[in-house]
Each structure stands twice: as C-alpha cells, then as structure tokens.
Design a protein around this nucleic acid. Structure first.
Ligand SMILES: NC(=O)c1ccc[n+]([C@@H]2O[C@H](COP(=O)([O-])OP(=O)(O)OC[C@H]3O[C@@H](n4cnc5c(N)ncnc54)[C@H](O)[C@@H]3O)[C@@H](O)[C@H]2O)c1
Ligand SMILES: NC(=O)c1ccc[n+]([C@@H]2O[C@H](COP(=O)([O-])OP(=O)(O)OC[C@H]3O[C@@H](n4cnc5c(N)ncnc54)[C@H](O)[C@@H]3O)[C@@H](O)[C@H]2O)c1
Lengths: 213, 213
DNA sequence: TTTATATTGTGATTTTTTTCACATTTAAAG
DNA sequence: CTTTAAATGTGAAAAAAATCACAATATAAA
C-alpha cells in the first residue's frame, strides 16, 4: 500500500522501470542502481529514486535495488497482477494489428471479443478472437465483465462506440481515434494519436531551429 | 514567432486544438470561444486561453477565436506547414497498418520508404511504398533527406535501427518498440508504448479502488 | 574490526505548470 | 452614441513536479 498519492507522471515512469526490469530478469545481473536504471530508461537517477520512494523503501544502500524484488514491488503497488477482460472495437488496419499483438495478453490484457460494424467482418475471427456486431457492445461488455475497451474506429464513430462501452460498465478506455472523447469522470481514459506525436516532434524541431537563428 | 518559450505540454495541447479546429472547418460555424473549444477537447477554458496566448493575441473579445484563423495561426506558429520526409522501419503488423494510414500523408508526413530485415518482404511494396533492406537505412536516409523515422521493429532490434537512422542524419524518431532508446540529444524522440498506457489505466483504476476502501 | 565509499531516501529548493480572478476589450443591442 | 455583457489575455497565486544535496546506511575491502 503506497504511502501517499503517487503522482500520475510517477506512475507512468514506474511502468517504464518495470518494463526494463522484466527484460533484465532474463539476464544474470541481480541488482541495479538508480543510476544504471536511469541510464537504461533515459530518466535521471534522482528521479528514479524519488519515483520508487513513492511505493516504499526497497533499495539497499551501497548495492541498489534487487531486480526481481523491485519488479514485483512495482507490480504489487500498482496492482498490475490483475488480468483485465478487454475488448477491441473496430477491426481495421490498427485493430487487426492489436488483435495479433501477443504482448497484450502477456501483460494481462485478455482480449475476449472484438466489435465491428462491417457485415463482412462480423462472425469472422481475427487473431483467434470472434468479431461481434457493434450494436451488441453494451450487452456483451456487461455480460462478459469487460473492464477495458480499446477504440480503433474512425473518428466519426468513436464517441458512439465510447458511449456504448460506457453504458456496458467499462472502467477504462484506450482511444486511438484522433478525437477527444467525452466521458464520465469515473472511467479512466487515455488517448493516443500518432499524428499528434509526430506534430509534436515537428514543432519541437521547428522551435529548436527558430531559437538557434 | 512565439513570444517566449512555449511549454512542451502547451505544444501538445495546441496540436489537439488544431485537430479539433480542422474538423470544425467543415462546419458552417465561424468562431469558437475558449469555453466551447475546451468542452470539445476536455481541457479547461482558461488553459485553452493561456496556451493560445503563448503564440500571440488572436482572439476577439466578446466573439472568441475565428476558427480558420486560429487553425492557420497554430500551424504557422508551430511550423506545421512543412512536409517531412518520413521512413518506417519494420513492416510487420504495426508497420503495415501505418503504411496504410492515409492520415499520415494528409498531415504532412510523406512516407518515402520502408525498411525490413526479412528477405521475403524486401523489394515488395506495402501501401504503395517499396521495402528496402534494413542494412541500407543509413545511406537511404541520407540520400533521400529523410527527417523522421518511425520504428516498428521488435524491441531487440530497435536500438540498432535507431543508431542506423541517427547515422543517416535523422532529426526525429517516433518509437513503438517497448524499450527506451539511447539517442543523441539533438534528435527529438517520442516513444509510444500501448501496454504502458494500458498499465497506467490499470494502475489508476487500482489506486482509485484502494483510496475508496 | 575499522575504514572507505557507493548508493539510497528524502527534506529543501527551484522550476514548471496549472489555476484563478479580473481588468480590458469589443460586438451587439438599445 | 451609450450601455451591456460575453469573452479575451494575463499577472498573480497555488499546486505539482523536477532537481538538488546530503545525512544515513550498509557493503566490501583493508
Ligand atoms: N491505421 C493506423 O495505422 C492508425 C494509426 C493511428 C490511429 N489510427 C486510428 O485508428 C482508427 C482506426 O484506423 P484504421 O486504420 O484501423 O481504420 P480502418 O478503416 O482500417 O478500420 C476501421 C474499422 O472500424 C470499423 N467501424 C466503423 N464504424 C464502426 C462502428 N460504429 N462500430 C464498430 N466498428 C466500426 C470499420 O468497419 C473498420 O473495420 C482511426 O480512428 C484511425 O484514425 C489508425
Ligand atoms: N502489433 C501491434 O499492435 C503493436 C502495438 C504496439 C507496439 N508494437 C510494437 O511494435 C513493434 C512491431 O510490432 P509488430 O506487431 O508489427 O511486430 P511484427 O513481428 O509483426 O513485425 C516486426 C517487423 O520488424 C522486422 N524486423 C525485425 N528486425 C528488424 C531489423 N533489424 N530491421 C528491420 N526490420 C526488422 C520483422 O521482419 C517484421 O517484419 C514491436 O516492437 C511491438 O512491440 C506492436
């Protein structure tokens, strides 16, 4: 049980440390210092230490952190042991890639079903998952206790399917459609827009150039 | 020319406003207030105003912002008119989805070529783009003045292809492999890991639950 | 056992970001 | 022309986050 409120940004970084730690588990190395872990994740050592301190004292002076112990501790503190029933809405280019992405299941996101509006896709299987019609989202989510929904439909349809997921009792939504979703506050939302990230890169490059000149 | 340094987070939000504005361009509405724009992007109105203020005074008291003018102004201020030569490395599930994603070109990311290590893929075309062998990354990037690289290879290969891109003179990198890349500071990097986003959702849901109990 | 020192954990400080509140502006109505 | 009020732009305050610096600690070497 974490001492106090963990900052949102610290949570994300803890997930990134864990990602690195789970890779290190396969190596013989037993412990790692905040400096080393920082090097591997492009995060300063004091930030690594401070982030870890939010979930308790786990390091050993002069030695660093035990890799397995720290990995487990992050998993426990953030509750990442849990397996989440997950659904994907929209089985196009991106949805198909996700349905074939084994890492999702490995990380505890168990995809139970997929939805699409296209009659040619409904009833078929992709990545071993059956595709249901999108007007069945609400009852199916409710019946299967689906907790997390991943939206991969065109932007024009995203709010509609989001509402259907919400009505079914979804708890978290990962949205890939390039549009901000309106969503009740009790649902945790995360939006990823590749083109916004690319534009961010462009903007930073441009502003770097301008400053130099 | 922006007055002072624009905060990184403000840049991202400006891109999100622009995304919404370009949708609104197709409607008849001419102006929009910070309040309305905030509603549409899930961002508070004062934040919208402050962000826009970083790129100058463009609003009209009592009316709000002219949609077309604000859209153009964001594009100009952040330098988003530019077309960027782009390459994709790794033409698997995700790389293929991206090569077939028309929005990239629409937004000014002109994919000139793709790279893969798989002999069965090299020489073929995907989404109209020819796939080159990955040992040709450095010279091809240099010759074609490719400025942005998108990495979609397995994590074990990501640092290698990243180094090859850097050697070719790349300026920005968007990385989808679940690993932090080591990269010289002059290259602008952005890393997207879907599973980290999902874990973030899980963690927030868990910590919400814990706090309630 | 003592010493030297690498490394943690954290309180204090600094920086950044968000939030607030309101004076100023200006379109529209009277 | 004057009044009204909606909306901006921003300086100031508050909150959050990052950074620093160092005392405390524990290991490994002497
Ligand atoms: N392709 C990419 O690489 C990529 C990258 C980033 C973001 N995106 C975004 O992800 C979303 C999907 O992109 P895509 O390339 O896979 O598009 P796509 O056109 O290949 O697939 C969209 C799928 O959604 C289905 N769909 C449409 N309306 C629906 C509804 N109401 N209910 C259920 N399903 C519905 C369609 O039948 C189709 O199968 C889009 O919003 C896109 O902007 C795509
Ligand atoms: N599939 C998804 O939905 C998804 C989602 C998020 C992140 N990712 C990440 O994106 C990356 C690609 O995922 P994927 O599912 O497309 O994998 P994939 O196995 O389908 O494709 C990987 C491609 O990279 C190529 N490759 C391997 N080594 C290479 C090298 N040295 N140079 C050039 N090409 C090389 C392979 O030949 C293959 O074509 C992975 O790091 C994965 O973790 C994938």
């Amino acid at each position: 049980m974490p001492k106090k409120n963990i900052p949102k940004l610290a949570i994300r970084r803890l997930c990134i440390y864990k990602r690195m730690l789970s890779r290190l588990l396969e190596k013989e190395q037993e412990t790692i210092s905040s400096k080393e872990l920082g090097k591997l994740t492009s995060i300063p050592d004091y930030q690594v230490r401070k982030d870890i301190s939010f979930i308790g004292e786990i390091g050993v002076a002069r030695k660093g952190y035990n890799i397995k112990k720290l990995n487990d501790h992050i998993i426990n503190s953030l509750g990442l042991i849990e397996v989440w029933n997950t659904a994907i809405v929209g089985v196009g280019q991106l949805g198909t890639a996700l349905l074939n992405y084994p890492r999702l299941k490995e990380m505890g996101y168990n995809i139970l079903c997929a939805f699409d509006i296209d009659p040619k896709k409904i009833g078929k299987k992709t990545g071993g998952i059956t595709i249901f019609p999108s007007d069945r989202i609400t009852p199916t989510v409710r019946k299967n206790q689906i907790k997390i929904g991943i939206i991969c439909v065109p932007p024009g349809a995203a709010q509609t399917v989001c509402d259907a997921l919400a009505k079914g009792g979804i708890r978290g939504i990962l949205n890939f459609a390039p549009i901000a979703l309106n969503i009740p506050a009790h649902i945790v939302k995360r939006e990823i827009d590749f083109t916004v990230e690319l534009e961010f890169i462009s903007a930073v490059l441009n502003l770097m150039k301008k400053k130099r000149s």
